[in-house]
């Protein structure tokens, strides 16, 4: 009897082990939600026999937190945004790709080949780039939406019907644009004003949610949503009468990148996957699905012809500048964290 129990427990433990990731022929991907089409992963598996496991996150900060709380060494690749690549590099969370390891490295579009957040592309390859601003339901509000006032000082029709992304970086950058102050400003008066402005704006917001940023617009639960351009296009195509704004004060531009993580359990497979994503046809499939832009040359031939003409992709003539989120130093970051906590208390 005892033997029976023991051996069945052992068998079950084995069964579990067989199911765990990181065995031979595996690849463990840590990725944004609703961003990578399953077909692309299936194609990679068909070509290489490598099975891909994917976990998802909903903000750069959440991904960093998870990696730092012990997940590093269990994932092979992650997909951080520009500023987060720099942070992860500083934190020693990235592995270096040796010269010549990536066969398709030359495919990287020249303008993305040597970015400030990863000089020389030592640990990353471009994934997608796009913008973050907000979309407004035109059934609810027909006035001018090309201003950050929509988020931070909204007209009466929109008050209490705004969903913000649950992401510190995006909100702080947008708020700085709204106030016309530099990002990561260490000027005390500016920081105080930033804090006060956000406190005041919060009363008009109904929720903080990144995952449902699209869904709340489609369902009508929110009339304004801070959102990424491609996600806004999807919301519109799913039936929401929303218009994506390019405010005159400016908007957030970003580039997501596939990075090789330190202590990746399947490093070789990870490199193969990066090479796979540098092939125009494959990265174009992601672009067609997520409706952003690829950073690989020769991708145009594979793109959905409608994509370029979508309103979300075409800033109007008066649109402000697209700015990348900056990495603050530790002192300013501490103040930012304090402002963030004040915002959510």
């Amino acid at each position: 009897m005892k033997y029976l129990v023991k051996s069945s427990v052992a068998a079950l433990a084995l069964a579990l082990g067989a199911n765990a990731a990181a065995a031979e022929g595996k690849l463990v991907l840590y990725h944004w939600f609703e961003y990578m089409p399953q077909e692309v992963l299936d194609k990679f598996t068909a070509e290489t026999g490598i099975e891909v496991t994917m976990d998802t996150y909903d903000s750069n900060e959440a991904m960093l937190a998870s990696l730092k709380s012990g997940a590093i060494g269990t994932y092979d690749l992650a997909v951080p945004g520009d500023y987060m690549v720099a942070i992860m590099g500083n934190q020693g969370l990235l592995d270096t790709i040796a010269e010549g390891e990536l066969k398709n490295k030359a495919n990287i579009a020249p303008e993305w080949a040597d970015p400030a957040f990863d000089p020389g592309r030592m640990s990353s390859i471009p994934y997608q780039w796009g913008s973050t601003s907000f979309a407004v339901n035109r059934d609810v509000y027909s006035g001018n939406i090309q201003t950050t006032d929509i988020l931070f000082n909204p007209p009466a029709e929109l008050q209490g019907r705004i969903n913000m992304l649950d992401a510190q970086g995006e909100i702080m950058a947008m708020a700085s644009l709204h106030m016309g102050i530099p990002q990561c400003s260490s000027d005390r008066e500016q920081l105080k004003a930033l804090n006060a402005m956000l406190q005041d704006a919060k009363q008009h917001w109904s929720s903080f949610n990144s995952d449902t940023a699209k869904e709340v617009l489609v369902s009508g639960d929110a009339a304004v949503g801070q959102i990424y351009d491609g996600f806004a296009a999807k919301a519109r195509e799913e039936g929401a009468n929303v218009e994506y704004a390019y405010p005159v004060q400016g908007y957030v531009a970003w580039m997501d990148n596939v990075v090789l993580l330190k202590d990746a359990p399947n490093r070789d497979n990870a490199i193969r996957f990066m090479d796979f994503l540098l092939e125009p046809e494959n990265i174009a499939a992601v672009t067609n699905y997520a409706q952003y832009n690829a950073g690989v040359t020769g991708v145009e031939a594979f793109l959905d012809p409608d994509l370029a003409s979508k309103p979300e992709k075409n800033p109007h003539a008066n649109a402000g500048p697209g700015i990348f989120i900056e990495v603050c130093d530790q002192q300013v970051q501490a103040v930012y964290d304090q402002i963030w906590t004040n915002l959510k208390k």
């Binding site: 939600f33 994917m54 449902t212």
Partner: peptide, 19 residues
């Protein structure tokens, strides 16, 4: 939970968060 390991509730949560 570790990388790539989901149980039903965490898998449901992952899906449900997007609606």
């Amino acid at each position: 939970k570790g990388a790539g390991v989901e149980t039903l509730p965490t898998a449901i949560f992952g899906s449900v968060k997007q609606g």
